[in-house]
Amino acid sequence: MQVWGKILGAFFGFLLGGPFGLLLGLFLGHKFDKARTNIYSGRGFGGFSAGRANSAERQAEFFYAGFAVMGHLAKSKGRVTQDEIRVASAIMDRMGLHGESRHQAQNAFREGKEEDFPLGEILTKVRMSCAGRADLLQFFLELQIQAAFADGSLHPRERELLHVIARGLGFSAQQLEQRLHMQEAAFRFQQGGFNQQSQQQGGFRQAPTRDQLADAYELLGVSESASAQELKRAYRKQMNEHHPDKLAAKGLPPEMMELAKQKTQELQAAYDLIRKEKGFK
C-alpha cells in the first residue's frame, strides 16, 4: 500500500497551513498514492495491455479482432470463396464502413485467413480487454455468428470453430447454442418480412405467418406460451444487452454502432409483432 504521499502531504501541509493545511495535504497525498497504485497495478491507462492502451486503442483492437476472427471463420470451410468475401463486404456495408475504416477491416479479414493466425491469442486479448463488460463479449460473439449465418446456412466446420471462439471468450457450449438458435430465428425473421425500411412503417410488409411469429418469440428468447409480463421482461433484457448507447459507454468501436442500432430495431419489431398478434398491452 502506498502511504508516502499521505505522510509527506500531511507534514508539509501542517508546516505551511497548520491543522487545515494538514488535512488538505493528507487529502492530496492520498490522491497521489492512489494514482501510483493504479499505475503499478496496470490500471492507470485504461486497464488493457498492462495499462498501456487508452480507450481509442482498445476500440481499435476490438475492431481489428472482430474482422480478423471473421476472416478466420470464413477460412474454416477451406478455401475462402467469393461468397465469404461478399458476406464480409455485406457486413461492412451494414456498418457503413468507407475509406480508411473499410480498408482496415479488409486488411484484418485477410490477416485472419492466414494459416498462422493466432486465434487463441487474439481471443485472450479480447476477453482481457472486455473484463467486466460481458455485453461487449456477447456482441463480439454475435458478430461472428451473424457472419457465419449471413449466407443462409451454417457449415459444420463453422459451428465447430464458433464453439472454439465461444470458449475462448468465456461462453459455455449451451450459451453458444442458444445464441445460434436466436440468430437463426433472426435470419428467418429478416427474410420473412422485417427490414429496416418496413420497420419504420410497422415492421412487416405483409401479414406475418405463424412461422414468423415463432421466429419473433425465439429471437427474444421466450416460448410462445410466454405471458405479457414474461415477454416484456425478455424484451427489456435483450434491449439492455444490445442498446447502442450502453455498448458505446463500455467501449464498442463507433464503426460498429450501426450493427447495434439495427439489432435493437430488430428486437423492437419482434416485440411489437408479438404484442400486436397476441393483443398484449
Rank of each mutant, 00 (worst) to 15 (best):
S41V: 13
I274A: 02
G51L: 02
G18K: 06
Y235I: 14
A147F: 08
L231N: 00
F32R: 12
R127E: 04
W4N: 07
L119E: 04
L24A: 02
Q197H: 08
G170Y: 07
S198W: 04
R36V: 08
Q196E: 15
R157T: 06
G99D: 01
S101P: 10
S49R: 10
F45N: 07
Q106K: 03
A10H: 08
A248N: 11
R52S: 14
Y217W: 15
A166Y: 13
Q229P: 10
M256K: 06
L213C: 09
K263M: 05
L141T: 00
A226V: 05
G5L: 03
Y235R: 09
D116Q: 07
H30K: 05
R52A: 11
A147Q: 06
I165E: 09
N54E: 13
A88F: 09
R179C: 01
L73V: 13
E160P: 04
S101N: 03
Q238E: 15
L15K: 07
R110W: 04
H155W: 04
F14R: 08
E111A: 02
Q104T: 05
E121W: 09
S225F: 14
A186L: 03
P208F: 04
K31Q: 14
A88V: 09
Q199R: 02
S89G: 15
N240I: 14
E84P: 02
Q191E: 14
Q2I: 11
K281V: 13
G66C: 08
G170T: 02
L213V: 13
R110M: 06
G47C: 08
A269M: 05
G112C: 00
K232H: 10
L26C: 12
